[in-house]
């Protein structure tokens, strides 16, 4: 009887613990909102936007999967500081995002290359729809070429060798030995970002000499994590994507040095080499494109972009990119302030 009793008590205690746990859990998540935006909780930094209380609405963002980690980090911090604002961030690629942006479906687009002014789906569509955009640089990326850690033969590739692998004329069953004499006669398992991504556009332009010209024998994915999985799983695989995805997965991947052929020799992608442009030709600027007209009438969008520029230095470094030099960042802030008139 006592045992029975104890059991029952135990069950009750367990239930109570769960209930309390659930309550405190709920309390914890709702704390920032009830705490108000004024005290900038969670070390969300000293952003001026955090003083703008009572913002509400939704800021919809799409675009580059390369810029995504920064925007996602900014969005999380922003939502902590402004609980009334929802900031869903998607990644359908720079080009894919611009198509939605120019139809007015999104408020801001992440881009890993500038908008194509005379492209039907981008600049021209935007102009036709009367979308007023502005380009703001938020970080620098070093597009990183990676192989499996078990790959012990390749440490540095030249642009020409990369083009052998990813060029449009590359054969279906390309062997590593065809890339360079001395490499093993094993099939190259190729991974690359989808055709909608700015990373793909940039890489094909720099390496193959023409945007969108590439081999048809690579596995493509808009989701960079799929590429990470692919390369991490096969000894003879190769892939490329934004530096941040490499930084996140240094234990599963090996970054290759790149010889840009300008006499600089082999250069590994690091924060320093990306920042001073010696990691050529694969270091590149990353942008956001907010909708200026919408920002003028919607304080939450303006506040979000303000917050973005204020925090991008810390957050882009945190997610693995290289922060802008101060002068360049100040330029972006001035451009933005001038555009939205305040």
């Amino acid at each position: 009887m006592t045992i029975k009793h104890r059991k029952r008590l135990g069950a009750l205690a367990l239930l109570a613990t769960i209930a309390v746990g659930a309550c405190s859990g709920g309390g914890a998540t709702s704390a920032p909102s009830s705490g108000g935006a004024s005290d900038a909780p969670g070390g969300a930094s000293e952003a001026p936007a955090s003083q703008a209380a009572n913002l509400s609405g939704t800021v919809t963002i799409d675009g580059s999967s390369t810029v995504f980690p920064i925007t996602q980090a900014v969005a999380e911090e922003f939502q902590i500081a402004n609980s009334g604002v929802q900031v869903p961030v998607a990644f359908s690629g720079t080009g894919g995002g611009f198509k939605k942006f120019c139809m007015g479906e999104t408020d801001m687009n992440d881009a890993s290359r500038p908008i194509k002014e005379d492209d039907e789906g981008e600049g021209l569509a935007c102009k036709a729809a009367g979308i007023e955009w502005i380009k703001l640089q938020v970080a620098i990326d070093g597009l990183t070429v990676v192989v499996n850690p078990a790959n012990d033969f390749a440490t540095c590739l030249t642009v020409a060798e990369l083009s052998t692998i990813y060029g449009p004329d590359s054969p279906a069953d390309l062997l590593w030995s065809q890339v360079r004499d001395g490499f093993p006669a094993e099939k190259v398992e190729r991974y690359m970002p989808g055709a909608d991504s700015g990373t793909f556009d940039y890489f094909t332009e720099e390496i193959n000499g023409e945007t969108d010209a590439a081999t048809q024998f690579a596995t493509q994915s808009e989701d960079d994590n799929t590429l990470v999985t692919g390369v991490a799983g096969s000894k003879y695989a190769i892939g490329f994507f934004g530096y941040a995805y490499y930084v996140e997965n240094t234990d599963k991947l090996k970054a290759l040095e790149i010889d840009g052929g300008e006499g600089g020799g082999c250069v590994a992608p690091t924060e320093a080499t990306i920042n001073d442009n010696s990691y050529a030709p694969l270091s590149r600027p990353l942008f956001i494109y907010p909708d200026v007209a919408k920002a003028k009438t919607r304080p939450e969008l303006k506040a979000f972009v303000d917050f973005y520029l204020e925090n991008t230095t810390a957050l882009s470094a945190e997610v693995g990119y290289v922060a802008l030099p101060d002068a360049l960042l100040q330029e972006q802030k001035d451009t933005w302030a001038a555009a939205v008139g305040g």
Binding site: S92, G93, G95, G96, G97, K99, K100, G121, G194, D196, Q220, S221, E222
Partner: peptide, 9 residues
């Protein structure tokens, strides 16, 4: 899946 996830006009 691949095509419909992107942004095909």
């Amino acid at each position: 899946i691949q095509i419909s996830l992107g942004d095909t006009p």
